[in-house]
């Protein structure tokens, strides 16, 4: 976790050293390439590992419903909290 924060800060400082347009352009390209490669690799891992697939399919619906409920709860609560915060702010 801390290494990720260090890399984020490093990217930030390198970005400050170069022109705004260049930093945004290079940053966008790097983040897009990183995202595509990351998702593809995650997909390969999910598809390739039989054990992982077995876990996901055997728990299937109950795991999915719990993940959905937890995500939905977080969305609703955070959405409400944002509304309250925005109302209070001048």
């Amino acid at each position: 976790m801390w290494l990720l924060l260090v890399v984020l800060a490093l990217g930030f400082f390198v970005g400050r050293l170069v022109r705004s347009g260049l930093a945004k352009g290079v940053g966008k390209t790097l983040s897009t390439v990183g995202l595509v490669f990351l998702l593809f690799a995650m997909g390969v891992r999910l598809g390739q590992e039989g054990f992982l697939r077995m876990k996901l399919t055997s728990f299937g619906l109950s795991a999915l419903s719990l993940a959905f409920a937890a995500g939905a709860g977080a969305v609703v609560f955070a959405g409400l909290a944002e509304r309250v915060m925005r109302r209070r702010r001048p």
């Binding site: 990720l4 890399v7 984020l8 800060a9 490093l10 990217g11 930030f12 400082f13 390198v14 970005g15 400050r16 930093a23 945004k24 290079v26 940053g27 966008k28 390209t29 790097l30 983040s31 897009t32 390439v33 990183g34 995202l35 490669f37 990351l38 690799a41």
Partner: peptide, 14 residues
């Protein structure tokens, strides 16, 4: 990939 992604986001953020 994760480090490249996070580094790129950091640059965009600058």
């Amino acid at each position: 990939s994760l480090y490249v992604l996070v580094f790129g986001v950091g640059m965009e953020l600058a």
